[in-house]
């Protein structure tokens, strides 16, 4: 990826993603943190597009931005007395150490390794190929994911359903 557009796009999106991720850590107010997290998700979706993964990018927007963040907002709103403070526990220092170590190690390894990449260019179209793969090669995981989603949905409903009330 050597054209100017890709390079500019990568750096901009990387800055957006990491910047808002850092802001999520630092900001105190939980609602604002979720809003920034959404920005971060959108940045990741943009990065997917630079990697010519259009289907995954759109799915990222649909699921992470449209669904999971809304769920989080709901959870924050439905727990009003829990406080909206996004503060750290006493794990702060070990957390920083561990995370720093992790970042350092992975970065070092990825820089150190010879990835022997073959430049193959981006994909022409991913959606149909992914669809075929899902329903052909990966049909069992696909079905399992469906079952998992169903189980998760039922579980979530059962968990939050107030005891002693019935749907009319």
């Amino acid at each position: 990826m050597e054209d100017t557009g890709s390079i500019v796009a990568f750096w901009l999106l990387a800055a957006l993603t990491l910047g808002s991720a850092l802001a999520v850590v630092l900001i105190r107010d939980l609602i604002r943190a979720v809003v920034l997290l959404i920005t971060s998700f959108l940045g990741v979706a943009g990065l997917y597009i630079t990697l010519s993964a259009d289907f995954v990018a759109v799915v990222q927007v649909l699921i992470y931005v449209g669904a999971i963040s809304v769920l989080m907002l709901f959870a924050i709103m439905l727990t009003p007395r829990a406080g909206r403070n996004n503060a750290e526990t006493f794990f702060r220092i070990p957390g920083i150490l561990l995370a720093g170590l992790m970042a350092f190690t992975i970065s070092l390894v990825s820089l150190d390794t010879d990835w022997a990449v073959v430049e193959r260019g981006g994909f022409e179209e991913t959606a149909s190929a992914i669809g075929e793969a899902l329903l052909d090669k990966y049909v069992l995981p696909f079905e399992l994911a469906a079952v998992l989603l169903l189980v998760a949905m039922l579980g979530a409903i059962l968990l939050v359903h107030p005891e002693g009330t019935d749907e009319e």
Binding site: T17, L18, A21, L22, V24, V25, S40, V44, G95, I96, L98, A99, G100, M102, A103, I106, S107, S110
Partner: peptide, 9 residues
């Protein structure tokens, strides 16, 4: 890696 570390923290 950086994103992962922030998430981990």
């Amino acid at each position: 890696a950086l994103l992962f570390s922030i998430g981990l923290y």
